[in-house]
């Protein structure tokens, strides 16, 4: 466990020692701020209209009509940000030869993979942390519920975890970070839009809806923690990490 944390810690530090962490967090903060202002503006306009037509502000719900669409937008940002976080994890170690240090140390391949996963997840969590600042403002002026917010963030972490595990796997396949980024992005996007085809072909609709990473997030953003979705995400992550460890192992055999 100690060496797993050592690797996680080293990963996190190396993100902050390079421009990656700052760029990822900076770009995220900017775009998220833009989304926030846009969604907030829309929400305010709508509630004013509601007031005029006598519906009363009562029917407007901050959680349902502001935070939920906002977090849906955040998932799109994540789609672009996460490949940048994972692209170098293994690629860089291979390029610089430090992989030889890791693989000849008294730790298992799986411990290395877990360490790297936790490191990337920590940076991702820091990135998500930025988005909480804006939400804090809502708590100052309004009265949103915090429980659905909490489940939404749990959902975001699990959702991002899936992408990180896939990204780790892809970065074991290449020394080239650009290749790593593009391939990871491609796979993410595919998992995203997989339902587009499924909805037109009834026989596979159930399957593709189940496979779509984003559909499982819906319930979390509504404030529901359904074990089916938790299990889906956790098995997705486990499978990704398993593939990563196997890929590292097969690299050893191929030399």
């Amino acid at each position: 466990m100690r060496n797993v944390l050592a690797i996680a810690n080293k990963e996190l530090r190396s993100y902050f020692a390079s421009p990656i962490a700052y760029i990822v967090i900076g770009v995220f903060a900017l775009l998220y701020g833009w989304f926030f202002v846009a969604v907030l503006g829309f929400f305010v306009r709508q509630s004013m209209q509601m007031g005029q037509f006598g519906g009363g502000a009562q029917s407007m719900n901050v959680n349902q009509q502001l935070i939920r669409p906002l977090l849906q937008n955040v998932t799109i940002l994540i789609l672009f940000m996460l490949p940048a976080i994972t692209m170098r994890t293994y690629s860089e170690e291979k390029r610089s030869g430090t992989i030889e240090l890791l693989l000849t140390s008294p730790i298992t391949d799986f411990q290395i993979v877990i360490g790297k996963f936790l490191g990337a997840l920590a940076l991702y969590a820091v990135m998500l942390g930025v988005s909480l600042i804006h939400l804090a403002i809502l708590f100052v002026y309004g009265r949103p519920e915090w429980k659905p917010l909490l489940t939404a963030y749990v959902g975001l972490l699990l959702f991002g975890g899936c992408f990180i595990s896939v990204g780790l796997f892809i970065s074991t396949l290449t020394k080239n970070q650009v290749v790593s980024f593009m391939a990871t992005f491609g796979v993410f996007l595919f998992l995203w839009v997989i339902t587009w085809i499924g909805s037109t072909v009834p026989s596979i609709e159930g399957l593709v809806t189940y496979l779509s990473v984003i559909d499982h997030f819906d319930d979390f953003s509504k404030g529901v923690i359904d074990t089916a979705h938790v299990i889906y995400y956790l098995s997705f992550i486990t499978f990704g990490l398993f593939l990563t460890a196997k890929s590292v192992d097969s690299e050893r055999w191929r030399g």
């Binding site: 100690r2 060496n3 050592a6 690797i7 080293k10 530090r13 190396s14 020692a17 390079s18 610089s96 030869g97 430090t98 992989i99 030889e100 240090l101 890791l102 140390s105 008294p106 730790i107």
Partner: peptide, 24 residues
């Protein structure tokens, strides 16, 4: 190894400490 497996963004002390952790 043929090329010393150093992490460019660590200082020598940090690096050796990290390797020490790796080695348990």
């Amino acid at each position: 190894p043929e090329t010393p497996p150093l992490y460019p963004d660590m200082t020598v002390v940090e690096y050796l400490d990290f390797v020490g952790k790796l080695k348990g």
